[in-house]
């Protein structure tokens, strides 16, 4: 629209070209910003389960370092893939392992030997220390349990 003001001399038309190219560049940048702001969240939103499944599939088994040295009635934190997990050696000499992310708002939970339960400090959620079942507070779901095996004297935790 601005172009018609100018006379049709050679120099002017070059200016017009540059200007048009500049405007096009700027508009594409603005368009890209918009597309990014709207499309990217939607892309992430729709792709979330797929990404999660990928992350889950990546690791199926973890050997807990020094896990075998864990004394009875104690717990140890370790990483299962990218997620924090918890290995508990119970007093009756059974071993269990749970995903240590609270199912309420995603805080890391802790084992409380004195109260014989798993506890989340953020909002006071509690879980059964043997099964991971949610027994108190806001958590909506039980903690996910892993399978624990002793192989060659080492503690191996795998996806149940």
């Amino acid at each position: 629209m601005a172009e018609h003001e100018h006379a049709e001399s050679g120099g002017e038309s070059r200016l017009q070209k540059t200007r048009r190219a500049f405007v096009r560049l700027m508009l594409s940048a603005v368009g890209a910003a918009y597309a990014g702001l709207i499309a990217y969240p939607i892309y992430r939103f729709l792709g979330a389960p797929a990404r999660r499944a990928e992350g889950m599939a990546a690791v199926t088994q973890v050997t807990v370092q020094d896990g075998e040295r864990l004394r009875a009635n104690e717990a140890k934190m370790f990483r299962f893939g990218t997620r924090p997990a918890m290995l508990i050696h119970h007093a009756d000499n059974t071993w269990v392992a749970f995903d240590a992310v609270c199912t309420h708002l995603g805080c890391t939970v802790q084992f409380q030997a004195d109260k014989q339960r798993i506890h989340c400090a953020c909002h006071g959620g509690t879980y059964d220390m043997h099964t991971g079942r949610n027994i108190g507070g806001p958590p909506p779901k039980p903690l996910k349990a892993y399978k624990v095996e002793m192989k060659d004297g080492q503690v191996v935790v795998s996806r149940a």
């Binding site: 717990a75 995603g106 890391t108 004195d114 953020c122």
Partner: peptide
């Protein structure tokens, strides 16, 4: 509350509730 303030994964400690006497139990971290 805002999301997910994870407690330090290593240093989980039992803090006895007010009236209870402190117990020497030594868990996870």
């Amino acid at each position: 509350t805002p999301t997910a303030p994870p407690t330090p994964s290593g240093g989980a400690a039992p803090a006895p509730a007010a009236p209870a006497p402190a117990q020497p139990a030594e868990p996870a971290g």
